[in-house]
């Protein structure tokens, strides 16, 4: 483990990228901040700029309009960073796979931009907040 990865794993700051979601994963992410789950106790904080973030929380499929913005956001994030693909849409595409406005899955878009990107899939529609916390913890333990 390099110094950078060791630093990354301490209290990760996340930036929320809603590609073309149905809002549900986004609301569940906000739910994580509220009293029942309160992820700030693990040092996970939602930040306002990708430049401050250690991880991107990506929800929803990426449509034609949002794809260039997603790539731009990924470029702006300080490296190394982890991409969490939240929910079934971001992980696999579900119904929207093959839709006229959904050219590529999110993971392909990111891997094309950076072949060494670290991608973590958290499936579910929407994943329960407990599953989200478990996903983050698991990802941190294997990094």
């Amino acid at each position: 483990m390099g110094l950078k990865t060791a630093a990354l794993k301490k209290s990760i700051w996340v930036f929320h990228v809603a590609c073309s979601p149905c809002n549900n994963c986004d609301i569940e992410i906000l739910d994580l901040l509220t009293p029942r789950f309160d992820i700030e106790r693990f040092g996970i904080v939602l930040v306002g700029s990708p430049r401050h973030a250690d991880a991107l929380l990506i929800t929803g499929v990426a449509n034609r309009h949002v794809t260039p913005r997603l790539i731009e956001t990924y470029r702006a994030t300080s490296k190394p960073c982890v991409c969490f693909l939240f929910g079934a849409c971001a992980s696999g595409g579900t119904f929207f796979k093959g839709g006229y406005n959904v050219p590529k899955p999110v993971d392909e878009i990111i891997l094309e931009e950076d072949p060494n990107a670290i991608i973590v899939y958290i499936p579910g529609c929407p994943p329960k907040p407990e599953a989200m916390i478990a996903g983050v913890v698991k990802a941190l333990s294997v990094l």
């Binding site: 979601p21 449509n63 309009h65 949002v66 579900t94 929207f96 006229y100």
Partner: peptide, 24 residues
């Protein structure tokens, strides 16, 4: 930024599958 083409996708699903799509 959020257009996913539900109305078109819906015409490719059966009557009983559409509720799952429009839910999303």
């Amino acid at each position: 930024y959020n257009h996913r083409g539900h109305e078109k996708l819906s015409t490719g699903l059966t009557w009983d599958q559409v509720p799952f799509l429009v839910e999303r």
